[in-house]
Design a protein around this nucleic acid. Structure first.
Lengths: 138, 138
DNA sequence: ACAGGTGTAATCACTGCGGTTACTTATTAA
DNA sequence: TTAATAAGTAACCGCAGTGATTACACCTGT
């Protein structure tokens, strides 16, 4: 949803867009969008103004925003779930495995983020535009 | 949890281990473990027997099981959430972005799995053993 | 036969997240 | 100065996922 919202903002090239409009594209509620925009503001990805005739726009050019940044801004939970209860420390495996898994999972997450870094928001809208053009041609 | 369970089985080197014992190490309920073991059976990672004095053991040597296999066996949900509602197809961005994002996210997931493939279950227990030895030395 | 296991269903609680309504606050325009 | 517009925010609902728990049927080696 975050990528979708930012893609619309990129598509609008600097024009301020209201949360109601974004909600229309994502097909959800403006409040959901505003909550998301607050997160994206904290990450300095968007710039939002209150008041009549205002809204949000990108804080940087789409070419200078990559998907890993968006991922980090939005996703605070780890992709790998660790059980709420602590393992049994009396078991030799249980005693030490948690730290080891944290190390391994962090590496995997970093690998994923490095892949996301390769795609910019500009790449996304270019692909979207190309895809739309292809459909219209047919 | 899956890695923890399989690590204990690897640690026990072929001995059959009961779900109650595994539950003790993970600090959870035997039923949870049995449900997990059913999934791991389907993936041919473990071999479980019913009856008195039985339990589960690895189906392959720990060196031939990597964490990506475990991930695929256990995790059926995509790491990236896509909104339940379809985007607004009247919006040029909403109309085409979903397919594009699927492509990008699949690539990122693949990158993550490739990283997980680099670590085998044997690597995990070796690291755990080393970590325990270090602690005891202190 | 029986004791020790798994398989499995039913149910509960907790959590996270999207959805919705309603209200407050800030800004622009008339 | 007032009205309109839009974000900020709190409160609450519903849904889905998941671990936890209990209970019971079924299998198997001694």
């Amino acid at each position: 949803m975050a990528v979708h919202v930012l893609a619309v903002l990129a598509y609008k090239e600097g024009d301020r867009v209201t949360s109601a409009f974004l909600a229309g594209s994502v097909n959800t509620n403006p409040v959901i969008i505003r909550r998301l925009l607050l997160t994206l503001q904290r990450a300095k990805l968007v710039d939002t103004c209150k008041g009549a005739g205002s809204g949000s726009r990108l804080n940087r050019s789409p070419g200078r925003i990559n998907l890993a940044e968006i991922y980090r801004a939005v996703e605070e939970a780890e992709p790998f779930a660790t059980p709420a209860r602590k393992p049994n420390t009396a078991c030799p495996v249980g005693h030490c495995i948690r730290k080891e898994l944290d190390r391994i999972f962090e590496s995997a997450q970093k690998a994923m983020e490095r892949d996301l870094e390769k795609t910019s928001l500009a790449d996304v809208i270019n692909a979207v535009k190309a895809s739309c053009a292809a459909k219209q041609a047919v």
